[in-house]
Each structure stands twice: as C-alpha cells, then as structure tokens.
Design a protein around this nucleic acid. Structure first.
Length: 319
DNA sequence: TAGGCGTGGCT
DNA sequence: TAGCCAAGCCT
C-alpha cells in the first residue's frame, strides 16, 4: 500500500502545493474563469443525468464513469438505468455471472469494460466490505480504473477535489489558457500540472469546477464546431482572442474500422450476446471472409475472458 | 509510449 | 462520403 505522505506534487496541488512557479500565465484571470464556468454550469449543466442527482450512490457514480469511457453519455444512460435496477450494489453484480455483465453491456462498445466492472465489484466485496472505495489510491487499484476514473469517482462520489483530467478538460485548457485548438496527443506531466494549477483553491469551488469544465468541453467547447458565441469565457479565451488558429501539431491518430480485428471481434460478441445457449463454430465462421482472422479474433476473445470455449467448436459468454 | 480495443452519431 | 470523435485503460 503506497503511503499518502509522499504524493507526487503535481497530483496533490491543494494539499501539497508545488514549489515550482505556477504553470498558468499570470495574464489568465483564474478567479474570473472559475466563477464564470461554475455559474455557467449552474445555469446550463445537464442536471437531469441520474448519476448527478443528490441521492445517487457511489456505486452509481462509479458505474457511470466506467460506462462513459470513450462513450457518449446519451448512449450510456439507458444501459446505466438497466444495470442499476438489476445490480444496485457491487455485491449484486459480483454475484452474477461475468457473461451476464457482458450481455447486459449490449452495444456500448469496449466490452472488456463490462468484465472489469464485474472484477472490480468482486474486489469491492472482498476488500472493501462491498463498498466503492473513496481514495484515488484504492480506486486506482481496481481493474478498469485509471487516473481519470479514480479522480472522477473521488470527486463526484465523495467530494474529494482531485484533479480530474479528461479529453474535455484537456481541450478547454488548451484553448482558454494555452491558445491552442487541441492539446497534445498524449497527456504529459506538464499538462497534468497545468490542470492542477488551474483549479480553484476553495474545496467546494474545486469540486464544482471539475464537473463544470468537463461539461463546458462536452457542450460548448467541443472538438469540431465549437460554439464560442455561447461560451461564458470567450472574451478571455487565449485561443479565441488569437483568432482561433488551426491545429498545427503532429497528426492525430485515426481509428480504422472496416475489416479490422475490432470489427470482427465486435460482430462475434454480438452473435454470442444474442444467443442464450452455446453457439457452434459453424454459426460464427462467416462473420468475415478471412477464416484465419475469425479464428484469431475468437482466440483473442477467449484470451480476454470475454468468451468461454465449451469445446473446440462450441462457444458462449463466460458463466 | 504507441497502438489496440467497439460502436454509432455527426459533419 | 469517409473520416472524426467520444467522461480512457492496458500492455
């Protein structure tokens, strides 16, 4: 268990101020930025989302964060409601078969997340008395939980103002403070420190800021076609003031799809989800023309624990 | 650290 | 239309 007495300075800006100079230029009026963004959230934020309601459990918040990884919230909400009705606590999910989690995941994408949620629920039962842990260190130890999710759950479920850095936060800070259209390809230390130094010092303000700046990035400061005319901080945004210069960094990584293993894996899993009994290999082989690719993908699904081979020619979701 | 990993809406 | 993009994580 790592000690909390010697945290990385860049990760604990509120309790462990950095000795380095502030990474935010002194020309940026942070207090105005905080006040405007937080007020905008109070006025325009999507408060109807069920995991933002006051009575939502930490488990509900945890579920929402994992489901939202690389996934639009509109597609998350119906699945989240189904899961919360069926498995209202970590213990309920842990008691179910992992294959049922994969089936209930439906077409949310990245189905290994369903498996990891099931594993995380099991760890919560075994090590945390059936509860969602509250500290970033404990959360980070759970499968499927990285720096973003650990910070988000600590903040949104427990009111601990960790530095929450997701794609929305990165884009808003790149524009408002750095004057760039997009952040770097990968999150680095300097950018994490910028996010930390950008946070309000007040605890309540910091907690609101975390969700508010994310929401601003999701609704207004969007990747393509930003709605600067609706932005509460357009008049002090470095990128807007510079005339919104185009992105000039290294080429952004594209995601290929057609003909990839990802597509074949997705189709295989789709067929296995639809069937409620073991499926013969013969009914899976035609998901792609290349049989070698199909077998490779089936093998990888088995290796991932997403598919269980009953025999060499019959497959199902893991029991 | 770069690349693999689903799915579907939007421009 | 064909990419681009989305509350990232893991190896």
């Amino acid at each position: 268990m790592p000690s909390r007495s010697a945290p990385e300075p860049t990760e604990r800006p509120l309790s462990q101020p950095s000795s380095q100079p502030l990474s935010v230029p002194s020309s940026v009026p942070l207090s105005v930025l905080h006040a405007r963004v937080n007020q905008w959230y109070a006025d325009e934020g999507r408060k109807h989302l069920p995991w933002r309601e006051a009575g939502c459990s930490p488990w509900g918040v945890f579920l929402s964060e994992v489901m939202s990884q690389q996934t639009p919230l509109a597609r998350v909400e119906p699945i989240w409601r189904e899961w919360m009705a069926r498995w209202p606590t970590p213990g309920d999910l842990a008691a179910a078969a992992p294959g049922e989690a994969v089936r209930a995941w439906g077409r949310l994408g990245y189905p290994r997340r369903a498996l990891r949620l099931h594993e995380a629920a099991t760890v919560m039962v075994e090590r945390h008395d059936g509860h969602v842990p509250s500290t970033p260190e404990e959360l980070l130890a759970l499968p499927g939980v990285g720096a973003y999710t650990a910070a988000a759950v600590s903040c949104f479920a427990f009111g601990i103002p960790e530095v929450v850095v997701d794609t929305n936060v990165r884009r808003v800070l790149a524009r408002t403070i750095e004057g760039k259209a997009f952040p770097n390809l990968t999150l680095n230390r300097a950018e994490t420190r910028l996010a930390a130094d950008s946070m309000p010092a007040d605890l309540d303000d910091a907690n609101t800021w975390n969700v508010a700046v994310m929401e601003l990035g999701a609704l207004v400061c969007v990747a393509r076609g930003p709605r600067c005319e609706e932005c509460p901080v357009a008049d002090l945004c470095a990128w807007n003031l510079a005339g919104r210069p185009a992105y000039d960094g290294p080429p952004r990584r594209g995601q290929t799809w057609h003909g990839t293993d990802r597509q074949v894996r997705g189709e295989l899993l789709h067929r296995l989800r639809e069937a409620h009994a073991a499926v013969p290999l013969a009914l899976l082989e035609d998901v792609a023309d290349d049989r070698t690719q199909v077998m490779r993908c089936l093998d990888s699904l088995v290796a991932d624990g997403l598919v269980e081979p009953l025999t060499r020619s019959r497959f199902r979701l893991p029991a």
